[in-house]
Amino acid sequence: MSSVPDTKVVRAVPTEEFVQLFSRSQRRLFLHILAQVSNPADAEEILQDTNVVIWSKFEQFQQGTNFIAWSFQIANFEVLKFRDKRRSSRLFFTDELCDVIAREAESMHDDLDLRRAALNECLQKLRPQDRELIENRYAPGNKGKGVAEDVGRPINSVYQSFGRIRKTLYECVSRRLKPSVR
């Protein structure tokens, strides 16, 4: 880790527009990957691999075309590679199903964006103790067991609470979206 290897020769620098598109796409990319592998830690790893490819291929991106679609394609390919690599240690959906999910998630893209925005408002509407608990759950590196220890409650009751809060959030988000969808 100490010595940084020789750097490559730079041929070009990405445009500011590319950088903006890139930075705005990160969360969507992450969520798009997550739908296919279901585990945030895996999704983060795949995202990093994807980012490397995106940066190395920025010249191939044609301005004015759909950046999201382009980067989703790269991400899908990285998901495939990751799955092949880890097949022995993980449970993954079949390739076929994974493909269906990727396509459907992409087609639900606008709707999901709205849901993500609504989620923020719904989080604010939670009871303070619930909000604190769920934020504790999603604190980096934290998991159910850690939260249970923090709050001094049995692990299973904490799992129950997470489930209840997530369901509440899901319902709240769905309610908020209804008028705009219908």
Binding site: F30, A43, I101, Y138, R166
Partner: peptide, 28 residues
């Protein structure tokens, strides 16, 4: 897997629920 595969509504729900989970993860 079999639920998500066989039922389009279940699949949609899976995508939305995972998206909610992922968003919480990402934001915090």
């Amino acid at each position: 897997e079999s639920l998500v595969r066989s039922d389009a509504a279940a699949r949609r729900f899976y995508i939305e629920y995972m998206d909610l989970h992922g968003t919480l993860h990402w934001n915090t």
